[in-house]
C-alpha cells in the first residue's frame, strides 16, 4: 500500500485512555505517527507503557478513544495493521528449542537473509546453536535480528528494545532504526534510556496519568 497524502500519518491515536484491571492508567493521549517517524514512550514502571503497546497491537482491548491505522479506525483496521507490524515484546518470541537461524526462518526469512541479519547482531557462528544455550543478551539479539531482515514490515513496535544490550549492540540498533526510518518505516518504542535518532518524538506517559477509577458513565465497556 503506497503512502497516500491522506494516510501520511499511518497510526493516529486520539484521546486514548487505557485501563488495566478496571483501573485507568492514563487518559487523553493523542499522537500521530507518520512514515519515517519514530516515537519514544517514556514513563515510570506501571505508567502503562506496555499496556499502550499492547492496545496498539490489538492484544488488550480495554480502552476508550480512537485508534486509526491508515485513516480507518480500530478494530476494523486491526488486521491491516498487523500485516505491516513487527512487534517485539517483553517476551521476545525466540524459541529456546530452535537455533537462531531456525527462529528467523520461522518468522518468514530466507536462509541467506537470516544469516546476514544474525551477523549484524553479532551472532555469527551461533546460527546453529540452540537458543536455550545462548545467554539472555544473545537470545534477545536473536529477536532483534528480525529488524535486520530486508523484508522487515513497515511498522515497528518495540517494548524496551535496548534492554540487555551492550554499548555496541545499542549503537548498532540505533543505526538500524535510522535505516528503517530512512526507508520511511515507522517506529514506536518504549525505553528508559535516551535514544539518539534524528527527529525522534517523545511522549512521557506520566503527563497523562490519572489517579481515578473509571466511573460508570455509559454503563458497559466500550462496545466492540
Amino acid at each position: 500500500m503506497p503512502v497516500t497524502p491522506e494516510s501520511q500519518d499511518l497510526l493516529q491515536v486520539r484521546d486514548l485512555s487505557c485501563r488495566r484491571d478496571g483501573r485507568r492508567l492514563f487518559a487523553g493521549l493523542s499522537f500521530a505517527l507518520g512514515a519515517g517517524a519514530a516515537l519514544q514512550i517514556e514513563g515510570a514502571n506501571g505508567a502503562g507503557k506496555t499496556t499502550l503497546l499492547r492496545t496498539l497491537i490489538g492484544s488488550a482491548g480495554d480502552f476508550d478513544g480512537r485508534i486509526l491505522w491508515g485513516g480507518s479506525p480500530f478494530p476494523q483496521s486491526l488486521p491491516q495493521l498487523r500485516e505491516s507490524l513487527l512487534f517485539i515484546g517483553h517476551r521476545a518470541g525466540v524459541r529456546a528449542g530452535l537455533t537462531p537461524l531456525e527462529n528467523l526462518v520461522w518468522y518468514g526469512a530466507g536462509r541467506d537473509d537470516a544469516l546476514r541479519a544474525l551477523e549484524q547482531v553479532d551472532l555469527f557462528g551461533f546460527e546453529d546453536t540452540l537458543c536455550q544455550e545462548l545467554s539472555a543478551g544473545q537470545s534477545r539479539r536473536v529477536a532483534l535480528a528480525r529488524l535486520y531482515l530486508p523484508q522487515a514490515p513497515r511498522l515497528w513496535i518495540l517494548d524496551e528494545p535496548l534492554a540487555a544490550l551492550d554499548v555496541a549492540g545499542v549503537s548498532s540498533l540505533q543505526g538500524q532504526m535510522a535505516v528503517h526510518l530512512s526507508r520511511s518505516g515507522s517506529i514506536l518504542f518504549t525505553s528508559h534510556q535516551p535514544v539518539a535518532l534524528a527527529g525522534l518524538q517523545r511522549i512521557d506517559l506520566a503527563e497523562y496519568a490519572v489517579d481515578e477509577f473509571a466511573d460508570e458513565v455509559g454503563g458497559a465497556y466500550a462496545f466492540g
Partner: peptide, 24 residues
C-alpha cells in the same frame, strides 16, 4: 518526504510470509 520508490525496502502488506500448515 517519502516517495513510493523509497518504500521498496519495506515489505508490502500482504507479502509478509506466514508459515503454511506444513511448515508449522
Amino acid at each position: 518526504m517519502p516517495s513510493v520508490e523509497s518504500l521498496s525496502g519495506i515489505a508490502p502488506a500482504a507479502s509478509r510470509a506466514a508459515p503454511g500448515f506444513g511448515a508449522l
